[in-house]
Design a protein around this nucleic acid. Structure first.
Length: 256
DNA sequence: ATGGCCGCCTGGGGCGGA
């Protein structure tokens, strides 16, 4: 089974890229973030034509997440239970025996901002919810845009970024708190190229100069960890005309 | 990297992103 996550930065703009990528890569599941559209605008038919079921929760302008799947999508949960939030950032569903959680974790803007406080509250609520989810689902994957670079090697210039948003100690602590629930960063289960990133700023030729961050992740529970066969970042879509600033992150699982 | 891009709201700039 092939799983992937991709922050598309507007599905309205990026739909052709997503359809091309699905056709070329044939993932079983693709989680999308930042669709930036209401449910009524979501292109269910275009995905259906390629053989994909889909669930989406969205809103105008900001946020919005979707799960596309070749297998039936069951027991859908929209947003984090018992967490008051008007931002559409989470979908969870049972797919082919795996609890898939698609998350667009808040950016936080700057460590001294209200948005950072929201990010930390949000991560705390996610953690508490996943703790109970893991008691009910041995096979669980948390896929999405975490807006956290877990280690210095996930940042192109750790010295310049020290203490800043995406790398601050509290954010990394929250990431490690998720790991301590019994989750593993699937990307790091395999040997990877130096300076592997999943996001590059549109400005200053960030992609050309590889000034990026690895902030999109697929965390897996122990029951999935033993099935992991390959993990990689696909930089190809970032080279297209009018790309998303993020690029897909992929995990391949053995049957079991 | 810290103005510099992109997409969205809109019909001109401002906000959010990361």
């Amino acid at each position: 089974m092939k799983l992937a996550t991709w922050n598309v930065n507007s599905l309205n703009v990026r739909l052709p890229h997503v359809l091309d990528w699905l056709t070329a890569n044939q993932p079983d599941v693709l989680c999308l973030q930042e669709t930036k559209q209401e449910d009524s605008k979501f292109p269910y038919a275009a995905f259906s034509e390629l053989g994909y079921h889909a669930v989406h929760i969205g809103q105008k302008t900001y946020n919005g997440v979707a799960i596309l799947s070749r297998h039936p999508i069951l027991n859908v949960q929209r947003n984090i239970p018992d967490f008051e939030d008007d931002q559409q950032r989470v979908l969870a569903a049972d797919i082919n025996g795996v609890r898939m959680v698609c998350a667009y974790i808040p950016n936080g803007q700057a460590v001294d901002s209200d948005k950072y406080q929201y990010k930390m509250r949000w991560l705390s609520a996610l953690n508490a919810w996943l703790k109970t989810e893991l008691t009910q689902h041995a096979k669980l994957a948390l896929l999405g845009d975490y807006n956290i670079a877990p280690e210095d090697r996930d940042c192109h210039d750790p010295a310049a970024w020290e203490g800043q948003i995406l790398v601050s100690p509290l954010e990394r602590e929250a990431f490690n708190h998720l790991v301590s629930l019994g989750l593993s960063d699937s990307f790091r289960l395999f040997e990877q190229p130096e300076k592997s990133f999943s996001w590059w700023d549109y400005r200053m030729m960030g992609f050309r100069r590889n000034l990026g961050m690895r902030i999109d992740h697929i965390l897996v529970s122990d029951a999935l960890k033993v099935l992991c066969a390959a993990a990689y970042i696909d930089k190809a879509p970032r080279k297209l005309e009018r790309p998303s600033d993020h690029t897909p992150v992929v995990l391949e699982l053995n049957a079991g």
